[in-house]
Each structure stands twice: as structure tokens, then as C-alpha cells.
């Protein structure tokens, strides 16, 4: 079993109105050092697959077919061994 984390964000050059609103709010609170704020989405799940490369390949396919809109979004996949409690 492996643990999968997919981080999805907007590509550079795509307007992120939510990020801009958060930035404006942080600036209003006095955090002027915060800039270029981008929002995104995190998807986590476990997968019955031992081989990391194979898991990565399968998850890439999931991203391309459903999880990510590649017109405006980019994604990053992390595969880790699942540590049983």
C-alpha cells in the first residue's frame, strides 16, 4: 500500500481571483510581506500498489482523465509508503 498526495494549482499566467482576494485581505491585516498568493487543491488517498513508479503512472492517468483540468491547472504527485499505525 502506498499513500498518494496530489497537489493541484493554477498554471502561471492564469488569473487566480481567490488568491488575489486572500492577498488583499492579508495585506489589510498588516501582512504586507505576503504576495503572489495562489490557491489550489489537495487530494489524498491510499492505493493498493507496492511499486512507486507504477503507482505514479496510474495516478498521472487519473489526473489527466478526471482530477485535473490541464487547460488551466498543473499537478504534482507524491507517492509514499503507507506507515501502518
Amino acid at each position: 500500500m502506498v499513500s498518494i498526495t496530489i497537489t493541484i494549482g493554477l498554471k502561471d499566467g492564469v488569473l487566480d481571483p481567490e488568491g488575489r482576494a486572500i492577498e488583499s485581505s492579508l495585506n489589510n491585516l498588516g501582512y504586507h510581506e505576503a504576495s503572489e498568493i495562489k490557491t489550489g487543491r489537495l487530494i489524498r488517498f491510499t492505493m493498493d500498489e507496492a511499486d512507486h513508479a507504477r503507482a505514479h503512472q496510474k495516478v498521472s492517468k487519473m489526473c489527466e482523465t478526471l482530477l485535473v483540468n490541464t487547460v488551466i491547472e498543473h499537478y504534482d504527485i507524491t507517492v509514499e509508503d503507507l506507515i501502518e499505525e
Binding site: 492564469v14 488569473l15 481571483p17 481567490e18 482576494a21 483540468n69 487547460v71 488551466i72
Partner: peptide
């Protein structure tokens, strides 16, 4: 082609 994003005015 293309996509529909969140309204600019949120």
C-alpha cells in the same frame, strides 16, 4: 475548447 473559471468578481 477552453474552460469556465470562477467569476473575476468572486
Amino acid at each position: 475548447p477552453g474552460t469556465l473559471m470562477r467569476n473575476r468578481g468572486l
